[in-house]
Design a binder for these strands. Structure first.
Lengths: 151, 151
DNA sequence: ATTTATGCAAACGTTTTGCATGTGT
DNA sequence: ACACATGCAAAACGTTTGCATAAAT
């Protein structure tokens, strides 16, 4: 919520957000800054490629969709952005958080809520018992109905 | 495991498998029989459209992919087949079971295991408490590593 | 006979790629 | 100056659709 704002005190703080790219030998371009800005414009956002591209192009219309795809790939690869597969044809991106969390997608309105990893802890041990699989440190997507859509 | 086998005793048993289509006013074509046969050839199979098409075409090469798509849609709509979205671009089909179950997909080899719904029962109540969402009666897909791929 | 299903080919939307140009470092 | 990133256009991919023909009821 603050990394991208100008004039923010400490001049040489640890690089945060997209500035981390430079430390990783990648380049900080205006396009990537704008993509990051789109992702962090509102808290808890989870945006599709289209939504990100639209917001970026409001600011810089020349940005091509392929650049958005490629930049998101880089941001995901560098750990700055999290890619979530919320069902088929529903790939969303959000800034990476420090804590792992999962998603509940509302079948009514498409809203997405976050669910803390705690809720899955003993699921892991039970899945292990039942079929011998070790759950990966990966997001789980659940589907349901949000408070408003439950009726 | 037995519906498709010939010579099975009772001549006029209740229609099962694809024969149910007829009762629903749909037609039982050779293509649909072959699709069903592909799905039930081995127990606990979960096949992609490509895999189904390939198996069908071994038997009847003229079958078009669009027919496979359309027939699967019908079979899903009539409740004979279950469509599972195991991550983006990973849509699988399996004969519908009587009990609800979920999937664990191995990130190593792609194997899929079934997990009984029991394991999710108190997850539902906990998700409700945490974010007010009512989990839908829908499959959940988990990712992990199967016994062989765990190392 | 009637209606539904099929094969074919073309259209579709999304994502990926090759390549010349432009830009950050 | 160099490597990396971009824009563009084309290709790839899985899926859907329109339509004339074929097959099931």
């Amino acid at each position: 919520m603050s990394e991208t704002s100008p004039a923010h005190g400490h001049a040489h703080a640890l690089p945060a957000g997209p500035a981390l790219l430079r430390a990783r030998g990648r380049r900080l371009t205006r396009q990537r800054e704008l993509i990051w800005a789109a992702l962090t414009a509102e808290p808890d956002a989870h945006l599709s490629v289209d939504q990100i591209a639209a917001r970026v192009q409001e600011e810089l219309p020349s940005v091509n969709a392929s650049t958005v795809y490629r930049s998101l790939d880089v941001l995901v690869r560098e750990g700055l952005v999290l890619r979530s597969e919320l069902g088929s044809d529903r790939t969303f991106y959000e800034p990476a958080h420090d804590h792992r969390h999962h998603h509940v997608v509302c079948r009514g309105c498409g809203a997405v809520a976050h669910v803390h990893d705690d809720l899955f802890e003993d699921l892991q041990t039970r899945v292990d018992k039942v079929c011998g699989y070790a759950l990966a440190d990966e997001e789980v997507t659940l589907f349901g109905f949000c408070p408003a859509c439950r009726e």
